[in-house]
């Protein structure tokens, strides 16, 4: 198992180096001079220009700049944001809990509905439940989620007035950040109604973000179940006289879950990296919105650092999923 893990980890090293090259190269291939860009509209004197050039290392050869970039990276230095002048890494870490909170809520919702729906659809193949749930899943899978979010805002915030339109919590509440997770912090604060407000702000973004994973999970659970239900060991279990419920719930479900768990894991990786569209629509102060804002503000160090962190998170989550896959499915460990 340790060899399996080390092998996977080693395999990621060239990929991560590739990611650093992309993030490093991104700023270099942009049109325009980086120092002039940084100086902004006001312009800059020639002496100051040379000084900045030297200070930032742009007078060095490109490969040397890249090595220095890597060196800083290993010391945890992702540079400073051009807009806020604070370190990119700390900015990222401040916003990260908001993204994690939303991503976890969405994936829990998607799993809790998707797996039972998929199992039931497979067991009752061809029934009206199968047809309706799979039709709905295909609609969810085809949904332009930025539009879906707007529709829900029109209905629930505009017409019914049930939920707030944007942000994480009402401005009426103010309390210190302990964990960064609004659901927990609002409970810890002990203020009346704070938790309710946090929940109300979470509902719509969670539904929107969960839509596509939910559809994917339901569809995949159904097809995995159908495949497993056709296997010989299921027929054997049935022939032994085991009740249908037990055959489906134990024999079939456990084996069908193997590919589904992988899918869920991969979805977590993508959602953790920031839900660009959902966060933008609901002004959710997370990584996705921050990246979009940084791109529009031409805050290149932030975009560069963000790209690196996002890719690192996706790769780390995928590695964990790979390991879990090895644990629940011993067959692939030795390949």
């Amino acid at each position: 198992m340790i060899r399996f893990f080390l092998g996977k980890l080693l395999y990621l090293v060239p990929t991560f180096l590739g990611v650093t090259i992309v993030a490093f190269g991104f700023v270099r291939v942009l049109p325009g001079d980086p120092v002039l860009l940084m100086a902004g509209e006001r312009g800059i004197s020639p002496e100051r220009y040379d000084q900045l050039m030297q200070q930032l290392g742009y007078d060095q050869p490109v490969w040397w700049q890249y090595l220095e970039f890597l060196g800083r990276l290993f010391r945890g230095d992702l540079g400073e944001s051009l807009v806020t002048k604070s370190p990119v890494l700390s900015e990222f870490l401040t916003l990260f809990p908001a993204t994690v909170e939303l991503a976890l809520c969405a994936i829990v919702l998607a799993t809790l509905i998707g797996i039972p729906a998929g199992v039931l659809a497979a067991v009752k193949r061809g029934s009206w439940f199968d047809q309706i749930s799979m039709g709905t899943a295909l609609i969810g899978y085809s949904m332009p989620i930025f539009w879906w979010g707007l529709l829900l805002i029109i209905l629930f915030s505009g017409v019914l007035g049930w939920t707030p339109v944007s942000g994480r919590i009402s401005l009426l509440f103010f309390f210190p950040e302990v964990t960064g997770f609004m659901l927990i912090d609002s409970l810890l604060s002990g203020q009346d109604g704070a938790f309710g407000s946090a929940v109300a702000h979470l509902i719509l973004p969670t539904i929107v973000l969960a839509t596509i994973p939910l559809a994917v999970i339901a569809r995949q659970t159904r097809s995995a179940m159908l495949e497993v239900l056709g296997e010989d060991y299921v027929r054997t279990a049935r022939a032994k006289g085991l009740p249908w419920r037990r055959v489906v719930g134990v024999h079939a479900l456990r084996n069908a879950m193997i590919p589904v768990v992988t899918t869920i894991g991969l979805q977590i990786g993508v959602l953790m990296a920031g839900a660009i569209l959902t966060e933008t629509i609901f002004s959710w102060p997370g990584i996705g919105k921050w990246m979009v804002d940084s791109i529009f503000r031409r805050d290149y160090p932030a975009v560069q650092g963000g790209l690196l962190m996002v890719a690192a998170i996706v790769m780390a989550v995928n590695l964990i999923v790979d390991l879990l896959y090895g644990l629940i499915n011993p067959r692939i460990r030795h390949v």
């Binding site: 060239p14 990929t15 590739g18 660009i276 990246m291 979009v292 791109i295 975009v303 996002v310």
Partner: peptide
């Protein structure tokens, strides 16, 4: 395949967004 892995390590919409920012 490693180059393909690098592309797949980024969420696709984010990478497309950054590429468009570079290309205009």
């Amino acid at each position: 395949m490693r180059v393909m892995d690098v592309i797949l390590a980024f969420p696709s919409l984010l990478l497309a967004l950054v590429l468009v920012a570079v290309l205009g």
